[in-house]
Design a protein around this nucleic acid. Structure first.
Lengths: 404, 404
DNA sequence: GGCATTAAATCTAACGCTTGCATAAAATTG
DNA sequence: CAATTTTATGCAAGCGTTAGATTTAATGCC
């Protein structure tokens, strides 16, 4: 009977644990001294310095020359720093009508971005992969980043995906078109790939950097053409086997809702209906527009300007949104609901009206309603955030492409 | 600047990690040899034996005399075993109308049980605490277990609870009555306490021992007087800040549902309505019963016997249940829905009818519908399971009361 | 400029824990 | 009883840590 051979001390387990502690500290801070790391990690100076040396050797950190300026009393400390340029992550928002890609460094700072439309004529699997490749390559070129230094990529798609990033086969050809095998495609390029539903990525963005930072449970409600929620409960994203948690197919069965239409499409549809049926008051600024110009921004802008007809539409939207929120809260007991997507910047008034209605619908305390600060970038921010988190999680298992 | 002093080797971290590995192996197996533990943990024989010695010293394990029987070829191995009687956990199902308590050993085997009703006259905080204490003490006495050897207790209540086991204050006096400060009360007895919503405990039971073992995501739907679900997604219970995930307050807003009534109460209410309105066919066995004898078991039994009137009721229940399941699945994309509670043993037929309706309501694949095998014990099994899991998680931090 | 002061880095010994190997023990088989 | 097999034990070596003494590099004061 042969057992796997081991190094001393359980395969250097302790050494590894301590290296992770130090690297985590480096990630959470900018320039730091050994003493600061000692306080944060509880390790000895010897250990901290030894782990730092190892991390420098591996390419994750560097020692920086001390700024000539400050200087305290005693011997000046050596300064360490995470090498933000030791590697990069790619985030992709592969939406129905356009593909957006960003390149970010290890600190999450965006260093390159590119976008290309996907028109109806090219809405097929191979074209979608090709345009995505082009978009990524151009974003990398714009950032001046060698593709070999990409440590991970996350792709957001308007489709269900399983834990491996595959979209389950089924009658829904839309999903299959939206996710034409991204996972396998990018794995072939040698990258660590995550493919995730767009609403779930919006939730990741809020959790890491947005309105989800200070609460245990919240829902990020993408509210453009269709409602779709990414749900974080107890600090973790609720996915389900196919990432379909929060897909809100159940809205068909909710009284006063009945469809998955989001705020953007409802504002447009109802606005045009009101316009054509002559239901708008005579002095309505909305009424003066051509029908085809009526869309969500126009409706919200008119309402903000005091247009009575538009305000009636917003009230109607508030009722709809309140019901959607009541369903989410009734099912998941979230502390906050973050309205995300392209409409987020203009829904302030709507949310105030919605909150009043919601108070009467749910068991107190009602979830807090806030607008996302990411606007149309929620998905792409979530993608790069998630890619970066994956890199951080198993940083010590990754070989950095180039070390100088 | 003073830093907390440390032992060598990071506070014995490695030693601890290895001890946990060995103890976990002991928990997962019955009698075992050092060689078996070596294979499972990847540790050396010296290390395994040394950790076993430590665990025996601490009281968690024992060395057992080798059975004279089997014997292989070489030197016979020493045999180790978890001491199932090293400590005990108490599970409590503190329901509205009765309190049930069990005592289980470290392997989860029930060694004592007691039950007491809570009638309306004693439905107040102090009486509820008193009858619970009595029930537990009698269960311990029946098991012959010294209360000092209790390592943890979990209490299931029909109320929301936060992570500390407290029920949030609010207008709902029912919840406050159902959870009259159990957490603090039992902490005063020196026990590690968990207080958790009953539906969530049912979900824990299914996850650990029941129909949730082989799927990543499922809902345990308590279906007696009121619907209430405990939800497990990606292997973890979805709680929310107050454990209210799955509380299903949203049923009020679902088309064709409109109330939180569960299968038990609906069968009774609809059955009696049909009886009194003369809607039951002349040859219905159900119709021959006095109105007050019509309840869920009677309805299901009659339907199983072919009673046309009862079958119509079951069909109506199936429609209601399908809508509830569609809502859960639409929101959470679960792989399976486990119908639990007292009605579980008799809902086989109902679930088959429900599955057909559900197929037409949700996006495929529809969640699988199964009946819980725990019947009315789902909550108490979940309570003892959860208490035991908590003990396992921080076993090495617990001092065993008595070591001989 | 010399010198005390301060704080960080470095060096060394000791320690805890694990591994690996040699050796001993306890059984079976021929 | 000897050979074989398997496990247990004892011991040296090594890793990685901690603790503490020593050295180094700065400042400030005389």
């Amino acid at each position: 009977m042969s057992r796997a051979p081991q190094n001393a001390s359980s395969s250097g387990l302790l050494r590894r644990i301590n290296a992770v502690s130090v690297l985590d500290f480096a990630w959470a801070n900018d320039v730091f001294t050994a003493t600061e790391a000692m306080d944060a990690t509880g390790l000895t100076r010897s250990t901290v310095i030894s782990r730092c040396a190892e991390l420098i050797e591996l390419g994750w950190m560097r020692e920086v020359e001390r700024a000539p300026e400050p200087a305290g009393k005693g011997r000046p400390a050596r300064l360490y720093q995470l090498r933000a340029d030791a590697g990069y992550v790619v985030g992709v928002d592969a939406g129905q009508h356009r593909v957006l890609a960003t390149v970010s460094d290890l600190r999450g700072a965006e260093v390159g971005r590119q976008e290309h439309p996907v028109d109806r004529a090219h809405d097929n699997a191979s074209d979608r992969l090709a345009v995505t490749d082009t978009t990524i390559d151009e974003a990398l070129a714009a950032a001046g980043v060698d593709p070999a230094r990409v440590l991970g990529i996350a792709v957001g798609v308007p489709a269900l995906t399983d834990a491996q990033g595959a979209t389950p086969p089924g009658p829904n050809t839309f999903w299959a078109r939206m996710n034409p095998g991204f996972a396998e495609h990018f794995r072939d390029r040698g990258w660590h790939v995550t493919v995730e539903n767009d609403a779930n990525l919006a939730a990741h963005a809020e959790r890491a950097l947005g309105a989800g930072r200070d609460v245990g449970s919240f829902a990020a409600l993408l509210s453009g053409e269709r409602f779709g929620a990414g749900i974080v409960v107890d600090g973790a994203l609720v996915r389900g086997s196919y990432g379909g948690a929060g897909e809100m197919r159940l809205l068909d069965y909710v009284v006063g809702v009945g469809s998955p239409h989001g705020l953007g499409s409802l504002a447009r549809i109802w606005g045009r209906e009101a316009h054509e049926s002559g239901a708008l008051p005579a002095d309505s600024a909305l009424g003066a527009l051509p029908t085809s110009a009526i869309d969500a921004p126009a409706v919200f802008a008119a309402a903000a300007a005091g247009d009575v007809g538009a305000i009636a539409l917003v009230d109607r939207l508030a009722d709809r949104l309140a019901r959607v929120c009541a369903v989410i809260d009734g099912m998941l007991d979230v502390d906050r609901i973050v309205v995300a997507g392209g409409v987020a910047p203009v829904v302030g008034d709507l949310l105030r009206r919605t909150a009043t209605i919601l108070d009467g619908m749910v068991h107190p305390p009602a979830p807090e309603l806030v607008a996302s600060s990411f606007g149309a970038d929620a998905v792409i921010v979530g993608a790069s955030t998630l890619a970066l988190e994956r890199v951080r999680t198993d940083a010590l298992d990754l070989a950095l492409g180039v070390v100088d």
